[in-house]
Design a binder for these strands. Structure first.
Lengths: 246, 246
DNA sequence: CGTCTAGTTGACAGTCCTCAATGCGGGTGG
DNA sequence: CCACCCGCATTGAGGACTGTCAACTAGACG
């Protein structure tokens, strides 16, 4: 009857947190009731914009970043389908970062009221939202460790593995292969490198038969080797296994 | 009558979010009902520890960090009195980082139940907690930008200014002077630098008559100059000014 | 066919790291 | 009281990693 979630990346992401009742699926569905389509490289909001809405990514790749006065850019994250962007901005004076599409995307604006009502209506929904926020924070922490304390090579390997894991959870990765429309400029700005140096690092990874990134497509040739290089552990990305979690 | 908050850094931090009713102050006070004293450099929890409790710092300086297998260390944050550590760990499988005291500290463990009950009992408390979490996220984002895209000099300047602002909000900074018991090893690990290089950077800042850090005490000599150097804007640290915020 | 974006490569410079040594102050024990 | 130790700060010399500048290729597109 209720197939609200069949095509919803949010429901897919929260699947393991279930079981979900029909009414809860409906509540989750309400997060995606409104839709907006945008082309590639369109601004969604800018740093300092007062924001009354967060955005659920329904399809496509997006990018969260901050610009510096000297022209520098730091990419904070690449939100994927099922990810919600800008929740923290709801509770501050404005967004702390800019948000834009990298590919054509489909977005669902979520008002503060919708978010809070959904969480109040169902404790399962509230849990899922709390987990999502906590996971985003864990990703951010790992990103900081990556940029602060890993070499360019390890950093890049770690980044690719994190992408692979996140994409696997939404069914967009298979056997170490996935589409990745992020160009080397954006990727370099995520990793705190220059595009030129990233290019050399990617060559090194390719020549070591670990991973190839070409024409918007990533092929991981040696998952274990890459994992060893990056000292990657993807536990922080998966839904919690604990029973009776809050 | 009700002086629950008079000596509570949490209430002080949340002051501007008021007005607070007595019963709400009581609810906030419940976050600090239990107390634990610890000496300097004591572990509070470790990465991967299953955690049922977050910690409110009541007094003293603390440190959140991650260790890498090669011996490296990335400091994520220096939680100060009024800050709550480990909320995200409650909603994941375990803590993503280690937490320890830098000085003798006083901590209040907050159970998941206490936190959620407090938030359910009062929408003002819920707001305050949401703001606190959102602010921590904003600080983390700024930290990532700092490490990823700013030179060692700007990075250090920015870090010192952020500390100054945070300390000012809890009344621990006056006229550009504050105590800072963080040694150069810890600070370097926060900034993604080596202690040796940080030392040279600090000398440079001192010789430029911008700021001096000596014997656990920071003196900002030229606030504007430092701010210009770091391109610092501390808005993300202050309570939101919006009316009717959620 | 020209233009544009993205990717690639080379040469060189510079920031930051590594290794090594020294100074300095505060404890602790003889 | 003094010697010793230890954590922390400081400095020097050299090297490695990463950035800068510049040029060139390849493919997409009109």
């Amino acid at each position: 009857m209720n197939d609200v979630g069949c095509h919803s990346p949010l429901v897919r992401k929260f699947q393991a947190l279930g079981p979900w009742t029909d009414s809860e699926l409906l509540a989750l569905g309400s997060f995606g009731s409104r839709r907006r389509r945008l082309g590639a490289h369109q601004a969604i909001f800018h740093e300092r914009d007062a924001s009354d809405e967060a955005y659920l990514v329904q399809s496509g790749w997006t990018c969260v970043y901050k610009l510096l006065p000297d022209g520098g850019r730091q990419v904070i994250s690449f939100p994927l389908p099922g990810d919600i962007v800008g929740i923290s901005g709801l509770f501050l004076d404005g967004a702390q970062f800019s948000f834009e599409s990298l590919t054509p995307v489909e977005l669902s604006p979520i008002s503060t009221a919708t978010l809070l009502n959904g969480a109040m209506a169902s404790s399962n929904v509230a849990r899922a939202v709390r987990w999502s926020v906590a996971r985003d924070s864990a990703i951010l922490v790992e990103h900081l460790v990556n940029v602060g304390r890993r070499s360019a090579l390890m950093r890049t390997a770690h980044f690719i593995l994190e992408l692979a894991h996140r994409l696997r959870l939404i069914g967009a990765e298979r056997a170490g292969e996935f589409a990745c429309p992020v160009n080397q400029y954006w990727m370099a700005d995520a990793l705190g490198l220059t595009a030129i140096h990233l290019n050399r690092v990617l060559r090194e990874l390719r020549e070591a038969h670990l991973v190839t990134l070409r024409a918007g497509h990533v092929s991981i040739h040696d998952y274990e080797g890459l994992k060893d290089l990056a000292v990657f552990d993807g536990d922080y990305l998966s839904p919690p296994k604990r029973v009776g979690w809050p």
